[in-house]
């Protein structure tokens, strides 16, 4: 029997760390990450699931954390922007975003990086059109997407030419 109630015990692995909390059934995953766990790198840009600022990877799948309730992720492995760098060493995409000026205000950046990370895991050598499709769900109001596309392309090239690959997914793909 599933447990029914307005609050639930949730255990998740976030960026490699196991955490357990009691959450309200009505709490969105994005609020769980930001308000409960203090992982404020994941942002909120809309209230209808359109902007992708809240994108995270759950069990290997790219999702919008404002479109999921916290109790739904019980048992899941979650990757957020805070987990992309390896200590002080930025991920190739993070570096590429910096090199190519792919961020201005930086508000869309965490979600954009999660989408780009997911894209390059699925498709290490995307065409520009595939890159644009891959970030279709992430709105950026500052850059006109020009340098974001450029940065993702450069990171994929770098990877192809033997540079550091995009880190593999955490948790199994389900």
């Amino acid at each position: 029997m599933g447990e029914r109630g307005t609050s639930h015990a949730v255990t998740v692995e976030v960026n490699g760390e196991k955490v357990s909390r009691i959450v309200a059934a009505r709490q969105l995953l994005v609020h769980f990450l930001r308000d409960t766990l203090g992982l404020t790198g994941t942002h909120i840009g809309c209230d209808t699931g359109n902007c992708g600022a809240c994108s995270v990877i759950v069990n290997g799948k790219l999702v919008k954390s404002c479109m999921i309730l916290a109790p739904q992720v019980d048992g899941a492995t979650i990757e957020t922007v805070e987990g992309l760098a390896d200590g002080d060493s930025l991920s190739p995409l993070q570096e590429s975003f910096h090199e190519h000026h792919a961020l201005q205000c930086g508000y869309c950046t965490p979600g954009m990086l999660m989408s780009a990370t997911y894209l390059l895991r699925q498709n290490p050598d995307p065409t520009d059109e595939e890159i644009r499709r891959g970030i279709r769900g992430n709105i950026c109001r500052c850059t006109g997407y020009v340098n974001i596309v450029k940065a993702i392309r450069a990171a994929s090239r770098e990877q192809a030419s033997g540079g550091r690959p995009v880190p593999a997914a955490a948790g199994e793909e389900v």
């Binding site: 992982l39 910096h98 930086g106």
Partner: peptide
């Protein structure tokens, strides 16, 4: 020049108002 502010922003360490 690539920007100085990028380091924190690409790591989700920016400090926005709701944070």
């Amino acid at each position: 020049m690539p920007r100085k502010e990028d380091g924190r922003l690409v790591q989700g360490q920016g400090s926005f108002v709701d944070d």
